[in-house]
């Protein structure tokens, strides 16, 4: 931003340096990739929507040109593949132009999914850390818990999600918590694995040093293992928060939920509302990106406070 300002002031030289910086930085390659994706997307939009569009023309007995075809394939109500600008328009309509309290608001659905994501993520992280603490400090837990933790992740979440919901409903739990628990089920795993590694990351001489001080186990934990494991915690939390979102969406699918991004996806596919599906998908992707970025920000803050080099 400051670059453009100075470019306006002094002319060609800064403009050249801007170009150079674009060439060196990430901006140019990233925009090239985005442009290529958009181009391919539009290509497929025309290609995939053409058969139905030709059917429409034939039923109407209308004359049509190639230009008509391209325009009309990008403006269908229920396209096989909506054009990017249709998705953007749908997102705009359902976020900015709709009251957030309305059932049609994508923001409302995103918030519902987000809240169960965050709850599930928080429980999952806590559970993961506690299990890792147990595994590192207790030989029996090390032997017995880890295989179960790994086995838990070999069961497809789609198979287990309805069971979790049904069982929890039977014991009187409904609403946010059952969905959140599916996020928990997915997100505790990377945290356990990462934190076991993190708690075991102190070097032998650091542990020996604590022993020469006759440090108690809690002292070794809080003064050595925990700070040594923090970088691992943030790395696993980045994975965990992203799959928590997946868990929350999956949790909305089999439950006949009426709200949430998962419900939007399901409703969209019932009624062939592909534009709505894609809008929900993009919203989910944006949420995931924001959540991961927030964890990354937390990581940077903590690293800086711990004297990190970055």
């Amino acid at each position: 931003m400051s670059v453009t300002a100075s470019a306006a002031n002094t002319g060609a030289a800064p403009a050249a340096s801007l170009l150079r910086r674009l060439g060196q930085g990430k901006a140019l390659p990233v925009s090239l990739v985005v442009a290529a994706i958009l181009l391919i997307w539009y290509g497929f939009t025309v290609y995939l929507n053409t058969p139905w569009q030709i059917g429409v023309y034939e039923r109407a007995g209308a004359e049509w040109t190639a230009a008509d075809l391209v325009r009309d394939t990008m403006a269908q109500d229920r396209p096989v593949l909506p054009a990017p600008h249709q998705v953007v328009a749908e997102i705009w309509k359902t976020t900015v132009e709709t009251r957030p309290t309305s059932n049609r608001s994508l923001l409302k659905h995103a918030w519902i999914t987000l809240s169960s994501t965050l709850l599930g993520f928080a429980i999952g992280t806590l559970l993961g850390v506690l299990l890792a603490v147990g595994i590192v400090h207790n030989r029996a837990m090390d032997r017995s818990v880890m295989p179960w933790v790994i086995a838990s992740q070999t069961i497809p979440i789609l198979a287990i999600a309805p069971m979790i919901i049904v069982v929890l409903n039977a014991v009187g739990l409904s609403g946010l918590l059952p969905k959140a628990l599916i996020s928990t089920y997915l997100s505790f795993f990377p945290v356990v694995v990462g934190m076991v590694k993190g708690f075991r990351s102190p070097e032998a001489i650091q542990l020996d040093l604590m022993r020469t001080y006759n440090a108690s186990r809690p002292q070794v934990f809080f003064k050595l293992r925990w700070p040594a494991a923090l970088p691992y915690l943030f790395t696993s939390m980045k994975v965990a928060v992203a799959i928590s979102l997946v868990g929350a969406i999956v949790g909305e699918l089999p439950t006949g939920a009426v709200a949430g991004l998962g419900a939007r996806l399901l409703a969209g596919s019932y009624y062939g509302q592909t534009i709505q599906i894609w809008a929900a998908l993009f919203m989910a992707a944006a949420l995931a990106a924001i959540l991961v970025a927030l964890v990354g920000l937390g990581q940077r803050l903590v690293t800086a406070r711990m004297g990190g080099r970055s």
Partner: peptide
Amino acid sequence: RAYGYVFQAAGLFPWRTIEKNVALPLEIM
């Protein structure tokens, strides 16, 4: 706590400043 041990490598805790590293045994004790 009859002895102080100096290991072959310094083994300072990277997340602690020098004064906090030196204070480590004092905190524990």
